[in-house]
Design a protein around this nucleic acid. Structure first.
Lengths: 245, 245
DNA sequence: GCATATTTGTCCGTATGTATA
DNA sequence: CTATACATACGGACAAATATG
């Protein structure tokens, strides 16, 4: 048993300087961004030992963060084997879009009763995406596009629908990251979103609904297509780690 | 290396070995039924110390169970204050029904493509409710009615919709339990469910949709009404524990 | 198939911080 | 303001499961 105290002190620089919120929350945030930004690829196993050292937290704290992220479906937990970054089967992409369609279309249908602030959120997310696109920050464009669709659901004014779409889109990021290149993937959607927003702002609910339905059909088709190709390659590359009983 | 700790460790290991799932799952199940059956009323604080001795598990294990139930929205976690059985504001009941309507109606709309087994699940839940009603087991009737509506959503064949309705209905149980008496509350819904099932079985999707919409309108109205009365009473009774900054 | 090393699952004891009487 | 109770987080220990050679 060699004391590795010096190492942990050295790597403790990875810790977030800001002390707000609980330690668990901070750890969860760090891991979440690492996953959604692709630093931890799907299928990767997150070792307790390695991460406690790297993040400078105890095993118990780390395990709580694992629990949280498992419930966000970003990690999967296998008994006595540990936690892994979730690998989404292609079928799940279709399922994700089925629910997405239901939530977003229902929200737009209810947009007539939405307060102006809710529509403002939509506009804000759109301009967020457009400035990011203007500066070639394509990862941020992807994030802003998600904010746009979260804001769309926000039109329904339902906290639970908000939460549902939030989780759903976080899960979709696992798929997005398998896609390359980011520009060709994210750029067309900004234009689509702009169209949807303008129809909404003009009060044309039916038009916005139709535009959104088109958007979702297109996005799903492209995504499933490109993803199944990629997934096949990734699958063979990680087969070694997927050995089961 | 024999230590005085050996005995207790061995006993703990035996206790774990007796049950299949992990200790965390066991604890979670126990707490979930305690809550949904009203043994722990909304607003109750669940003390870590008290429950560790009562259940014979460690704090870490118990805390993991708390996390799970918090994500099911049965518990709420307040930083440095502990976990409490969720108290649902009356507004949330309306929100629950908004999402419920969206999910269930969308599922029925997709029922034409559902495999026969899915409809079988619906029928099975219905007869489950009817036999429970015949034997005056009204708590079980409530459970079976939930199975019925979960089975309805199952017609869509979407795992994520299944999960969403499962969580939603679990949350609704927090409301149901405030209601009395159970018979008058649960009984009428069995008849409504039977009607919905028969329309579905006859292939009358539109009719089933309309019947379900009626059902949801009625249920929400009754529930919100009765709940706000009750909630007012409960609120004054538990005001002491709800003091905030 | 077996023996070994690694990793997870669970529990304990304790120190520190936070909220409330 | 002090005291008390409790949650947060840490580190250590060992059993059980899994992976490795």
């Amino acid at each position: 048993m060699t004391s590795s105290r010096e190492w942990s002190d050295r790597l403790a620089a990875d810790r977030v300087a800001l002390d707000r919120g609980s330690t668990t929350e901070r750890v969860t945030d760090v891991l979440r961004t690492r996953i959604t930004e692709g630093m931890f690829a799907p299928g990767t196993r997150l070792s307790e030992d390695g991460l406690t050292v790297a993040l400078g937290v105890s095993r118990n704290t780390l395990r709580e963060a694992f629990r949280l992220l498992s419930h966000e479906r970003l990690l999967v937990h296998e008994l006595n084997r540990g936690v892994f970054v979730r690998m989404l089967p292609a079928d799940d992409v279709a399922d994700l879009y089925r629910l997405r369609r239901i939530l977003e279309l229902a929200a737009v249908d209810a947009a007539a009763d939405a307060p102006p602030e809710a529509l403002d959120q939509v506009r804000q997310a759109l301009s967020e995406a457009e400035s990011a696109a203007a500066e070639d920050r394509w990862m941020d464009v992807g994030t802003a596009n998600m904010h746009f669709h979260r804001a769309l659901v926000g039109l329904a004014g339902s906290p639970r629908m908000d939460e549902a779409i939030r989780q759903l889109l976080a899960e979709l990021r696992l798929v997005f990251h398998v896609m390359e290149p980011p520009r060709e993937f994210h750029e067309p959607y900004v234009r689509e979103n702009r169209r949807i927003y303008h129809l909404l702002a003009a009060g044309d609910i039916a038009g916005a609904r139709a535009a959104l339905a088109d958007y979702l059909d297109l996005a799903e088709k492209q995504l499933v297509e490109a993803y199944s190709e990629r997934a096949a390659a990734v699958d063979t590359a990680t087969r070694r780690g997927a050995r089961r009983r």
